[in-house]
Design a protein around this nucleic acid. Structure first.
Lengths: 149, 149
DNA sequence: TGCCTTTTAGTGTATATGCACGTTATTCGG
DNA sequence: CCGAATAACGTGCATATACACTAAAAGGCA
């Protein structure tokens, strides 16, 4: 089963990034599957939610909240803008372009929410209260300042 | 701070996918930063490691181990093949193409390992033993069969 | 006022990821 | 032995993600 043991070590088992990525792939697929009837991905759903809920001042602020690179966010917004779910204002000149949820975007969010809820409850059930609590607590500890230190 | 409360609920706080994605972005960036001198990403590092360690029978088998779509894996292999780190054999006809670590690939892995170790230890320290154990245990629970059920 | 620094945003390029779809090879039933 | 089902793989297309670089606006200071 295992070869080259002299050189290759226990990375698979210990690497936090590996575990995280493997889990993320399953989780995102699970939510994406559930949301498919709405045409949204879980990333898009979360993004719309944050924009609608916090009405952020700038793109960068949203990016910070999501631990997402600003340029990635800029690109993630494109399909949402194209679909008419968000609107990027140009009020204050070119700088500080606000992002706003449109009426259509809010409607889409409401439409998607039950699908999200189903997926969420399935995940919560699959994990069980203990694991869910542990996961939440541990992930909360994964912050920029803890890693930078 | 918070608006539209009638429509927009507590998705941000509860959604496991959201938490997972936000944490994953930080974690992968952390490892990617550490590995930058080697030119590998953490995804590539993990992939090379698995291929070298388990010498899998097929692409699909690797994909299963990584909870990765087979076609995604196929594409992830391309830069590694181009760089000469892996070799895709055609022994058994077109079907069941084996993936092998080349000598160069093994050398690269050895070169990268100390950088990975540094990143890993930083993450372990940032999390602390308790959170690390909880995270590991919880992520282990995120499996295909638990979610499907 | 005018320059310089900081802040905010977009583009080019590359990797990462998954679905729908098509292709080839193996296997299995008749 | 042949046709159908299955298994393994690749491509086209779209989204997701980040870094390096560039552009423009805001703010501060001489």
């Amino acid at each position: 089963m295992t070869r080259n043991d002299a050189f290759l070590s226990e990375v698979t088992g210990r690497c936090v990034a590996g575990r995280m990525l493997r889990a993320s792939r399953l989780i995102t697929r699970h939510y994406d599957d559930a949301l498919r009837p709405t045409g949204l991905t879980i990333t898009q759903f979360g993004l719309l939610h944050v924009i609608g809920k916090y009405e952020p001042e700038s793109i960068s602020q949203v990016a910070d909240m999501m631990n997402l690179d600003r340029t990635s966010l800029s690109r993630n917004l494109k399909p949402l803008e194209k679909a008419g779910f968000v609107h990027r204002g140009n009020e204050g000149g070119q700088r500080r372009r606000r992002v706003l949820l449109t009426t259509l975007g809010l409607k889409k969010l409401e439409e998607a929410r039950p699908y999200w809820k189903t997926a969420q409850e399935q995940v919560e059930a699959a994990l069980g209260e203990i694991h869910l609590a542990n996961l939440t607590q541990a992930l909360r500890q994964v912050r920029n300042d803890t890693l930078k230190a």
